[in-house]
Design a binder for these strands. Structure first.
Length: 603
RNA sequence: GCACUCGUAGUUCAAUGGAUAGAAUAUUCGGCUUCGAACCGAAGGGUUACAGGUUCGAGUCCUGUCGAGUGCACCA
């Protein structure tokens, strides 16, 4: 991982409230520790019955030459001797830990009230954040988008949102790098010109699904070419044809260039359609066709400056000292490669946006490629190279093996979305068919489908592959996006039932109201919202956010089961519980928004 | 051959070097005349692949072994 070149701030109020008393007590024991170190050592106990926060005494054991358990005992005594800490009702020694409990009023005013006032969602968590670009979604034109692309898209989008919240929106720039040139394009165009009825092509010009059709033509082209490969005569003929197409594309003229210009748009339409559905926007689109020619010039310039070497008639950089082999940048025929383009692209990113940090969301097959590129960039004198990071993720596979648009055995994105929506409508929303308008059913089905697909793509650690099984994906019980959305819908209907128009209302917490264990556990968990956001962003792990939201929803459902709002013992308690519901709703909806998942009013 | 990633319950997955390794799913049992059952509760299910090492402490870090996947010079 790249080095940390920013400062994290102490942002969580309850932890913060303990840092000074702990620092003073530790000072009495003869240990000097910064507030930041204490803040970092305040962790969550294994369960809320033990305490709401725990302080581990391991780090001082060595300096004091005492066992951590003894330090804990002495620290408790020192804390008590200094007087009571605001809001703290008990401090228990449990082995090396100090388990600390707060009263409900303190818990509530630092979680529920801060959520209701929106303060929780605005607090600054980082200072001096580096200007960072995240590149994600690098689809090829002339190929169909499938569920594998979705993992990249969901991951990248969630990361952008989490980073913007944690580091500041103005520091984060999103970009995409679609592949609109290359042999895959040539193959597709070859097939259309030579093996498709011109009338069909004409018809496609008016077909809203022409982007999808183009992708299928690419698969057909591959099958055809593989088929004809066996016949030497045809093999040579096709090879010559593809070379001619590539030549026309490079020259920027000819019938294939014209066809490329038109069909390229069809693919872009499809991309835009998907991005719009997913709620994804890019600050900058870098096209492969745009850096292609320039990248060769750039590399030639570096070669002329003596920064690159010649080897076996080609140009590149020998990285064998770093166990990275040879980074090839100019083929012996003088043309560039993938790495050539990435060098030029990186240069532009650094210079166009003055970024200090660059993240690439690309699958793990490119691990060596990016190591070579980053090393080469460093060699060429780019200081930012040390802050380049390849966020790799594993593929989405089918139960019977890898997906390949070349072979045509893919699950198109549209198929997954359509099946998911249909499933939600028939299995769940059909019960409202007399109550809801058809429009609402459609809108809600779409939102729930988004919740299921995005959550499913993000929840898993990036290094683990996802085996895509449609039947499994359609099961929406248990840990899933819709589970979290459902909890929001429940909260919404509760608030409506008891007269609150929205989740935004204020409530003044006084006295011990939310004391039921399920209420306390829920509040204790709400306390960790920002910490989880920051953790997810810093470690590029949107999956942690999924887990957090699932647990929040789970704890809410337990509270909902255990504590009645309508039949609360007093009006005060009822209001307090409503406030807790509303705060939970806000945390869930803000959290889902950070994953790009919408929240339906009801479902 | 070398490099990278992974190996945790029947299955799919969690777990900043920290307390008794947690969820979901499947199985079995229980809970709607009740604020939404897309929910809640209970039970069983584990030698964290294996062997060493580092330390107060290892699923996590290091070394080795085994297994799975992916890369490794003119494709992107």
């Amino acid at each position: 991982m790249s080095q940390k070149n920013y400062k994290t701030l102490m942002h969580e109020p309850l932890r913060l409230s303990l840092t000074q008393p702990l620092q003073k007590a530790l000072e009495k024991l003869g240990v000097m520790v910064t507030l930041e170190e204490i803040y970092a050592a305040l962790v969550e106990p294994p369960n809320a019955d033990m305490g709401h926060l725990a302080f581990g005494c391991f780090i001082f054991a060595k300096t004091l030459k005492k066992s951590p358990a003894l330090v804990a005992t002495e620290l408790k005594a020192a804390l008590l001797a200094a007087g009571s800490v605001d809001g703290v009702i008990s401090i228990e020694v449990a082995g090396p830990y100090l388990n600390i409990k707060f009263n409900s009023e303190t818990l509530a005013s630092n979680t529920v009230r801060k959520a209701l006032s929106s303060e929780m969602f605005k607090v600054q968590m980082v200072s001096d954040a580096p200007k960072t670009m995240i590149e994600y979604s690098q689809p090829n034109t002339h190929k169909e988008l499938h569920v594998g692309h979705m993992r990249n898209l969901c991951l990248g989008d969630a990361l952008i949102r989490l980073l913007r919240r944690s580091f500041g929106a103005d520091k984060i720039i999103s970009s995409t790098f679609p592949g609109d040139v290359g042999t895959h394009v040539a193959k597709c165009l070859w097939y259309i010109k030579n093996h498709t009825d011109p009338d069909v092509l004409k018809q496609k010009e008016a077909d809203p699904l022409r982007g999808e059709w183009l992708g299928r033509m690419y698969s057909a082209a591959n099958l055809k070419l593989e088929d004809e490969e066996k016949i030497p005569e045809l093999f040579e003929k096709n090879k010559a044809a593809l070379t001619e197409i590539l030549k026309q594309l490079e020259a920027g003229s000819g019938e294939y260039f014209e066809l490329w210009k038109e069909t390229r748009e069809w693919s872009i339409e499809l991309m835009n359609k998907v991005y719009q559905w997913a709620g994804v926007e890019f600050d900058r689109w870098y096209w492969e066709s745009e850096v292609d020619a320039e990248s060769v010039k750039t590399v030639k310039k570096y070669f002329a400056e003596g920064k690159l070497v010649e080897s076996r008639g080609a140009v590149g950089l020998d990285l064998s000292a770093d166990d990275l082999g040879f980074c090839l940048l100019l083929k012996s025929d003088g043309t560039g490669l993938y790495a050539t383009k990435d060098i030029e692209l990186a240069r532009r990113k650094f210079e166009d946006f003055k970024i200090e940090k660059s993240i690439y969301v690309v699958d793990l097959r490119q691990a060596l490629h990016f190591k070579q590129v980053f090393k080469t960039l460093a060699h060429l004198g780019f200081e930012q190279a040390q802050n380049c990071y390849h966020l790799q993720y594993n593929f989405v596979e089918l139960p019977d093996g890898a997906m390949s648009s070349r072979k045509g055995n893919i699950v198109p994105l549209t198929t997954l979305v359509d099946k998911m929506k249909l499933h939600v409508k028939t299995q769940y929303l059909s019960r409202y068919k007399d109550e809801w308008s058809a429009d609402e059913v459609e809108t809600v089905a779409d939102m729930v489908a988004k919740g299921a697909i995005k959550y499913g793509m993000i929840r898993q650690d990036t290094n683990k592959k996802i085996v895509f099984d449609m039947d499994e994906w359609l099961k929406l019980d248990g840990e899933s996006g819709p589970f979290v959305q459902y909890s929001c819908a429940r909260i919404n209907s509760l608030l409506k039932k008891f007269g609150q128009k929205s989740w935004d209302f204020s409530f003044d917490f006084k006295g011990e109201l939310l004391t039921h264990p399920s209420e306390v556990k829920l509040m204790q968990h709400l306390m960790n919202f920002n910490g989880t956001v920051l953790f997810s962003a810093e470690n590029y792990k949107p999956s942690s956010m999924c887990t957090y939201l699932y647990e929040t929803a789970k704890k809410f459902n337990v509270f909902y089961h255990d504590c009645s709002v309508g039949n609360a013992e007093s009006e005060e308690l009822k209001q307090a519980r409503l406030a807790l519901c509303a705060a939970t709703g806000l945390v869930l909806s803000h959290g889902l928004a950070l994953l790009g998942i919408p929240v339906p009013d009801r479902m």
